[in-house]
Design a binder for these strands. Structure first.
Lengths: 192, 192
DNA sequence: CAATTCGTACAGTTTTAACTGTACATAAAT
DNA sequence: ATTTATGTACAGTTAAAACTGTACGAATTG
């Protein structure tokens, strides 16, 4: 039996629910944009976050009103960041993707990936420059000015290298999850 | 008395020194670019990093071969990130800038600034959405499907909020430097 | 073996961000 | 008070990126 007033109420409910999601999705998109991920890709992530089932590219296109190509590159982007993963489901031909639901893990993956990249990059070039400067210092007949410049540069590099050593240990403590002994995870509230 | 061969050697020394700096500056620029700072601004920072004395906008322009306007906006950029600070020197009319030499501090300022921004943004919108959904759940005659959707959304938000609580504590431990009790700073090497 | 479906490479377009030069407000120097 | 120096707002330009549509190869289906 039809009930028009209940229908109307349901519609309102859905609208509030949609708005509640939309608000959070936008915040997520804006936030992640601080770290070089475009808002579009952030919205894609946010949309998938609230989806119970894994999504196909077509569903993403439908949900965001963007081209399939963009969905494809966007999802690859998120894959590289380990924020989503590819799934498989029997009888479904299309590729399926779902978000990594654990935000601690996402945080760790996201920053450790970047930090490691930075550590490698910088440590490598710094060590090379340290080497060059050390050799230069060996020269017996350097002007005192040059010698002093080299010394200060070297000390700066030594300090920077120590910093990267520290950062590397921080990355380790995140990846091994030892960090949670120092800063424990709070227990989340649960509905009902 | 002139000594041409010594001059030549000095020149070579300077070149190696310059290359040693350049290599590191490029690495710094590339690294910071991972976090949404343009390579140009990264190079500006790197250049200032190796400068013993505070720099003026004109010196930066000279050093990087870019417009003074770019130096002005670039330096403001770095100021906001607390990576450089404005200095003053008696008798010097121009504005002077120098890098924050402590990379631990720079790391802390840089990430805590961003993280806090993200925390505020997300927690605010999430709390609002949680509120909306909780009110929705009060409704006595919800369809079971809708009720279930709301429940799962709420639980996701509760988990996310717990995560942000954790992140907030991480930020605290960085800003109070308690983190260094957990992960101590290694002692840097010193020249000579 | 067609015929169909799917995902992505690629070229072209649009949008956004970076950069420059000029012009001007502010402050210092004469 | 006038001149000179300094930093930045702003408009315009150039460079980069985000995005789209088409085309095509790989895989699947009939």
């Amino acid at each position: 039996m039809k009930n028009p007033s209940a229908d109307k109420r349901d519609q309102k409910t859905r609208k509030i629910l949609e708005q509640a999601r939309f608000r959070v999705i936008e915040a997520i998109a804006q936030n992640i944009n601080l770290y070089g991920v475009t808002p579009s890709v952030g919205r894609l992530y946010g949309t998938m976050y609230f989806q119970e089932e894994p999504m196909t590219l077509d569903q993403m296109q439908e949900a965001l009103g963007m081209s399939k190509t963009s969905m494809s590159t966007g999802v690859r982007n998120l894959l590289e960041l380990k924020m989503v993963k590819k799934t498989w489901r029997k009888g479904v031909r299309k590729d399926l993707y779902e978000v990594e639901p654990d935000w601690y893990q996402t945080f760790i993956d996201f920053f450790c990936l970047k930090w490691r990249k930075g550590i490698d990059l910088n440590v490598q070039s710094m060590k090379k420059s340290v080497d060059d400067l050390q050799k230069l210092l060996q020269q017996p007949d350097l002007s005192e000015d040059d010698r002093e410049t080299i010394r200060t540069d070297l000390n700066k590099l030594y300090e920077a290298l120590a910093y990267y050593e520290w950062l590397d240990k921080l990355v380790d403590s995140l990846e091994t999850e030892e960090i949670f002994e120092f800063i424990p995870k709070p227990i989340p509230r649960k509905v009902e």
